[in-house]
């Protein structure tokens, strides 16, 4: 697995660097991204992050995670995020809620 991981990280690193320089190289002058492309790219972050949230929060490998502190603390975090609109507050209060639930023995 070590060699596989090394190769995968290396290929992903090369591909990711090409993505990182793409706009800087291709759009050096006055050229702009077509609006459709821009819109699709702007949806990558919400779609990819939501996918990772769903996979890590609700599933354990391929099974449903039993309802508990993970779900409750996540609800707290989403609530704080919508209320404060701040990454720092969401992280802090989400982590605090999770720690409190674990300490309370859930």
């Amino acid at each position: 697995m070590t060699l596989t991981a090394f190769i995968v990280f290396t290929l992903a690193a090369i591909g990711t660097y090409l993505i990182r320089v793409s706009g800087i190289v291709l759009l050096g002058g006055d050229r702009e991204l077509p609006p459709r492309v821009r819109k699709a790219l702007s949806l990558v972050a919400p779609a990819a992050m939501a996918a990772i949230i769903a996979n890590s929060l609700f599933l354990e490998q391929s099974d449903w995670r039993a309802f508990g502190p993970w779900h409750i603390a996540a609800i707290v975090a989403v609530g704080v995020a919508l209320w404060k609109r701040s990454m720092g507050w969401t992280l802090a209060l989400g982590a605090a809620a999770f720690a409190a639930l674990l300490l309370a023995g859930f």
Binding site: T16, E32, A48
Partner: peptide, 23 residues
Amino acid sequence: MAIAVITALVINARLALYSAAMA
């Protein structure tokens, strides 16, 4: 390996947008 790499690159495609913004 191909699936692992492609998944990573799809997630990182958002960086193309930032790259365009940095141009």
